[in-house]
């Protein structure tokens, strides 16, 4: 075991950790918002929007995230030269850093998985609660915002910690496109120093700490929420 490289790479690892957390936080928040829309499209949408939402969720859940990321980054990249004028006039789009593709791929992925869960949660809210809202004259939007969504959110909260950890566990894939996340930094050490185990073990420990932090964070939130559940 050799650890003398740690000081030299501390900055790179810290920056990588920041990128990993950025990817996690952005994709969870944006992905969740998208998931609510996907779920609503399935439980309340018309035939077409419900079908599209269902297809999207199946696609995300049925294919490896690695391939989704490659399709988004290299697939789309290979299309640029085919469209005349893009390279000259849409420089910013062509030059878009890989991190944006990563954020997009991870957001869509989280949305696909969480959309399915939110759909179940929306359907599990007792009809009576919604009818009560209607009876006191709430509009459809008010019912959604005040009753349906909060109720569904309470239901998914216990599973959400697991989902976020799942998302954290997929973030190392970001290094397969040119993004220097935590894994990317470890990978750099592996390349520069011809080491395998030490950098991997170090990031493994960091991931363990992050997992633990997410678990405790969520149980803290759960305790804050008033509930009549016996447990």
């Amino acid at each position: 075991m050799r650890w003398d490289w740690v000081p030299d790479y501390a900055a790179a690892l810290a920056h990588g950790l920041f990128i990993t957390l950025l990817v996690l936080v952005v994709s969870v928040f944006l992905g969740f918002a998208l998931a609510v829309m996907l779920a609503l499209a399935q439980v309340r949408g018309g035939m077409i929007s419900s079908f599209i939402s269902k297809c999207f969720c199946n696609y995300i859940r049925g294919t490896p995230l690695l391939m989704q990321l490659y399709l988004l980054y290299y697939g789309v990249g290979s299309l640029f030269p085919l469209i005349p004028g893009v390279r000259e006039h849409l420089q910013w789009l062509v030059r878009l850093d890989a991190i944006y593709y990563v954020l997009m791929a991870f957001t869509l992925s989280f949305a696909g998985y969480e959309g399915e869960i939110m759909r179940g949660a929306f359907l599990a809210v007792p009809r009576g609660e919604l009818e009560a809202g209607e009876a006191i004259g709430m509009s459809g939007w008010q019912i959604l915002r005040r009753i349906w969504l909060p109720s569904a959110l309470y239901k998914v909260l216990p599973t959400l910690a697991g989902e976020v950890i799942g998302q954290l566990k997929s973030t190392p894939l970001a290094f397969t496109v040119p993004v220097m996340d935590l894994m990317g930094a470890a990978h750099k050490v592996m390349q520069d120093k011809y080491l395998i185990y030490e950098p991997l073990l170090l990031v493994a420990c960091i991931y363990l700490v992050l997992t633990w932090a997410i678990t405790s964070g969520f149980s803290l939130i759960e305790r804050q929420i008033p509930s009549r559940r016996s447990v």
């Binding site: 290299y74 990249g77 290979s78 640029f80 030269p81 390279r87 062509v94 030059r95 040119p178």
Partner: peptide, 11 residues
């Protein structure tokens, strides 16, 4: 190969 792809893409 990936470098070449991104060079061709203008990235």
């Amino acid at each position: 190969d990936q470098v070449n792809a991104d060079l061709a893409a203008g990235r």
